[in-house]
Design a protein around this nucleic acid. Sequence first.
DNA 1: CGAATGACCAAGC
DNA 2: GGCTTGGCCATTC
Length: 109
Amino acid sequence: MSVFTDQVLKVVRLVPYGKVASYGQVALMVGVPRAAIQVGWVLHQHGDDVPWWRVINSKGRISTSCMEHTAALQKSLLESEGVEVSEDMMIDMGVFRYAPSQEVLDSLN
DNA sequence: CGAATGACCAAGC
DNA sequence: GGCTTGGCCATTC
């Protein structure tokens, strides 16, 4: 497991209950702003170790677009945490987006 | 080492 | 934000 993978897992675990973060944001926190897609890759492999359902794409849409059953699961998981998810798998980023504190960011290094 | 792949992103229509 | 295009980057083959 690479440092990148390790960092991604660490960041995703920081996302609190009832909040969501985008792949791009996670990548940014990890230190590689353009590696958003790798974040998705990591989550796909470690779906049992992290709250992957709290990670969505930049438009607030559930990312598992090519896996319908998984998308439905993600929707139900988010709703069970109090996150509003429309029938089109859309989420209100302005309300549910996770804003990491400076202290949290420092703890990543 | 080079080529392909992907739970993505930003920009342009 | 709907769809297409080009570009990133880690991982795999």
